[in-house]
Every structure is written in structure tokens, then in C-alpha cells.
Simulated assay, not measured.
Amino acid sequence: MAGGNAIRGSRVGAGPMGENERGESAPRRTVSYYCANGHVNSPSFALGEDFEDPEIPLEWDCPRCGLPAGLDPENPPEPMRNEPYKTHLAYVKERRSDAEGAALLEEALAVLRERRGDVEVVAAD
């Protein structure tokens, strides 16, 4: 068979890909961010119309360690302080004193006893 596929030996996307096929890339500005672990990250931001500076964020997350990175190499931002997980009970205890908690518990138990028909309990003052 002398025939065959006309594009034999090539693959999708193969061939020259220069700016004349893609178009010109937008002008960019590279900014360096520094984290507390000494990593340097340099993302580039596309300039706006009339080549004005883009809005550059003051902080950027470091892709290597995840800490916040800032523009000042001498003063990188402090790592965020993670608070330990709190249960619902811990949050309730922050809002209520032990006496208030005991009063609420006694009130709830009295409602349950009344609903069940148990012996009536006189609330203490």
C-alpha cells in the first residue's frame, strides 16, 4: 500500500509556535516576595492599558512552605498563629459561668422530668 495518512509522523500541536501564531504576549512586571523561611517567589503581573503598573498585592502565599510572603526582604510577614480546635462546649464555657451552666442544666432537667411524669422536684434558690 503506497497510500497512507497525510500527516504521518506529526502530532497535535506540533510545529513552530512563535509569537506570529500566538500573538504578542502582554508586557509584564515581575515582583519578588520574601517569606520568613527565606524563600523568594517572583510572580509576574501583566501591566494594564497604557503600561500602567498593576495593582500588586502586599502579601503573597509562598508556594514552597505556605507562609505569607511580603515585599520587604528584611521584614517578611510573621506566620499566622493557628489556634487549637475548640469544641462547641469550649465556646459555651467561654460565654457562661459555672453557676449559669448549672442553672440552665437544672432548668432543662426539670422540663424533662415534668415531660416524663417523674416526681416533681422543687427548685433550689
Rank of each mutant, 00 (worst) to 15 (best):
M1L: 10
W60K: 08
V92P: 00
R29L: 05
C62Q: 07
G18Q: 08
E19S: 08
T87R: 04
R11P: 07
A26E: 15
R96C: 08
L67K: 05
P77M: 03
P73E: 06
Y34I: 04
Y85A: 12
D53N: 15
C65W: 02
P57Q: 02
E78T: 11
P43D: 02
E52I: 12
E24P: 12
M80I: 15
S25I: 12
L47Q: 02
Y85W: 12
L71C: 00
N82A: 11
P76N: 01
P43Y: 04
E24S: 14
G9W: 06
G66Q: 02
S42Q: 14
Y33I: 06
Y85I: 12
P79N: 05
C62S: 09
D50K: 14
E24R: 13
N5W: 10
R8E: 10
E83M: 06
M80D: 15
M17E: 14
D53C: 11
A6M: 10
G101S: 09
C62I: 10
R95P: 00
G3L: 08
F51D: 13
G70A: 08
G4P: 10
E74F: 07
A6Q: 11
A69I: 08
R95K: 11
M17D: 15
N20I: 12
F51M: 10
R96K: 09
N41Y: 11
G9V: 06
P57G: 02
R95C: 07
G48Y: 00
A46D: 12
P43R: 03
Y91H: 11
H88K: 15
G48I: 02
M1N: 11
E83T: 09
G18K: 08
R11A: 14
G48W: 02
E78N: 07
E24F: 11
N5S: 12
A6K: 14
A69G: 09
I56M: 00
G38K: 04
A69P: 07
I56V: 09
E78I: 05
P63W: 01
A2H: 07
D98H: 15
V92C: 03
C62G: 07
S25R: 15
V92T: 04
E100W: 00
M17N: 12
G38Q: 05
G3V: 08
P63M: 02
R96I: 01
K86C: 08
G101T: 10
G70C: 11
R11G: 13
H88V: 13
H39S: 00
H88F: 15
G15V: 05
R28P: 01
R29A: 01
R11T: 15
F51R: 11
G3W: 10
G23T: 08
M1Y: 12
E74L: 11
V40N: 01
R64A: 01
L67R: 05
P79G: 00
E19K: 09
E100T: 05
L71T: 01
G38Y: 07
E94Q: 13
E19T: 09
R29E: 04
P16M: 06
P73M: 03
G101V: 05
E21Q: 13
P76I: 02
N20E: 12
H39P: 00
E52A: 14
G101E: 09
H39C: 02
E52R: 15
L58N: 13
L67A: 04
E19G: 07
Y34A: 00
P79M: 02
G18V: 05
A46H: 05
R28Q: 10
P73W: 08
T87Q: 01
A26G: 11
C62L: 04
E49W: 08
M80P: 11
F45C: 03
S44L: 03
E49V: 14
